[in-house]
Amino acid sequence: MKKIDPSRTDLAHEFKAKPYGPHSPDLQKVLSVMRWRETPGKHVLVEIPALSQWVLGRLPASRGEPVELYDQTVFDRHEDGLWHLFKIRWEEHTGQRLESK
């Protein structure tokens, strides 16, 4: 399977600018690889309608266990939350952290 090239930070910039797409063919491949992430321990967003916010969460290993919520990592825009998830997956795949800027 395709390995994510950590030097292609241009694709990260592309995602940050347009998290919903449409995306370039190279970014589509990167996202497809990232989306194969297994469920246990997967980071997700949880929408809180009452606050119009999204909180970072992490899925448990099995049904019946609560989703771990990171109360300090909250986003006012869904797009910002998606960018945060992208950075997490990027690091999982490449071992390298994307600069926040």
Partner: peptide
């Protein structure tokens, strides 16, 4: 689906998983 479909929910929706409160209730 948002929790148990695993990678399928993200591949078919082409978006990282975003849960609702209903997903949390159903999970628990």
């Amino acid at each position: 689906m948002n929790v148990d479909w695993g990678s399928l929910i993200e591949q078919s929706s082409t978006c990282f998983a975003t849960l609702t409160m209903a997903d949390l209730y159903l999970q628990n």
